[in-house]
Amino acid sequence: MIGSKDKARAAVYTQLAATQKMGLSLGKAVDRLVEKGGYGALMLADVRGPLLAGDPVEEAFEQSEAISPLEVKVIAAGAKAGSLPQVLANLAERYTQRAATKAAFVGKLAYPVFLLHLAILFPSIPLLVSSGTSAFLQATLIPLAVGYGVVFGLYVAYHQGKQRAPRALDNFLLRVPVVALIERRSSLADGLRALELLYANGVPVLESLASAREVTPNVVVGDLFERVAHRLADGESLGEAVALEDDLPDYVIELIATGSSTGQLDDMLGKANARLEEEVQTARSLLVKAIGGIAFGIAALFVAYQVISFWSNLMNQVNKIGGG
């Protein structure tokens, strides 16, 4: 199911947040979730022992391969700052939103996918009567197999590219129309969300920027966090450092500069992230509409080809009978 893993993570963090609000120790809360089994046990099994033994929160959560470095840093910062219930609730909200976004995007793709299947299956129905089941299956399964093969091939190529040549693949994605906007804005939103979560929980800005770069999905976009950190280390203000980044939208630069000067950086980062996510949603909707239009065009061409072929074959048979 699309987004099921994100929903499961959100549920785990929601339960942890609830137990922290009740005053239960983090070690006992983790122990309870592990005993319940399910995804909580998968996430936290390696965390339970170190926590119950009294190890620091960060060291304990680092033992789980199912928990990302960003989550580890945010949880450790929340525990240190005394805001762990809110941090856990924020993580739950983040994964709930991710699950909803994935489900909505896939749901919007259902219509163009349906059109393509209908275009292949419906015109071939007469073959069931005229030529039998084998002819129908041959006329439909081969195009469907080719289509599924192309999709699977693109999926494999993407993941192989991410493993072997991530920078080259990310550069390519940033040059594809519409996809580039989605890739740039969504990656930037992820990085800013990490920066917001860490900074709001007391992590120094330079360390927060380093973590933001690590979790940014597109490595090319993530480089900007490193450049900003270098400028800060050289003595520039945060507002001055981000103002030099051409890849940052003007409103992001303005919000960060305002937050830095007023002491409300975490709030301004939240607002910047919200606007970026709105842009991503709009761009994804446009992409789905474009895919729908292309699918409709392909379906229309395929149906036209099938109809023309049917009538052409029929006329040829009539002519042969008449000529005979």
Rank of each mutant, 00 (worst) to 15 (best):
G263H: 12
D250F: 15
L198V: 03
G297E: 08
V72S: 00
I182N: 06
M268Y: 04
A8Q: 09
A300M: 03
P50E: 06
V307G: 03
R213D: 06
T262V: 04
S261H: 14
E214C: 09
A100T: 11
Y148V: 11
S312Y: 13
D223Q: 08
V178L: 15
G322P: 12
G293E: 00
G161E: 11
G293P: 04
S186N: 15
A45V: 08
V47H: 01
V215E: 02
G38C: 03
S130T: 03
G27A: 14
R98P: 04
Q86L: 07
A11V: 06
G263A: 11
T140C: 08
R48M: 09
L198P: 03
L238Y: 13
R94I: 01
L265A: 05
I321S: 09
Q317S: 13
A295I: 01
D6S: 12
A135I: 00
D266K: 07
D247Q: 15
I321D: 09
V74Q: 00
P112T: 00
L244D: 13
V219C: 11
I67S: 07
L115T: 04
G270R: 13
E183F: 12
L195D: 03
K271H: 10
S237V: 13
G149I: 02
K5N: 13
D46Q: 10
G107P: 13
A165S: 14
T282E: 15
A274E: 14
Q86D: 10
S25Y: 12
F310M: 10
K21H: 08
E71T: 12
S4A: 15
A99L: 07
N273K: 12
E93H: 14
V228C: 12
G263E: 10
A212S: 11
N218S: 07
E214S: 14
P112A: 02
S124D: 05
Q160C: 14
S25Q: 09
G27K: 09
V203Y: 08
L137M: 02
E240T: 12
K73Y: 05
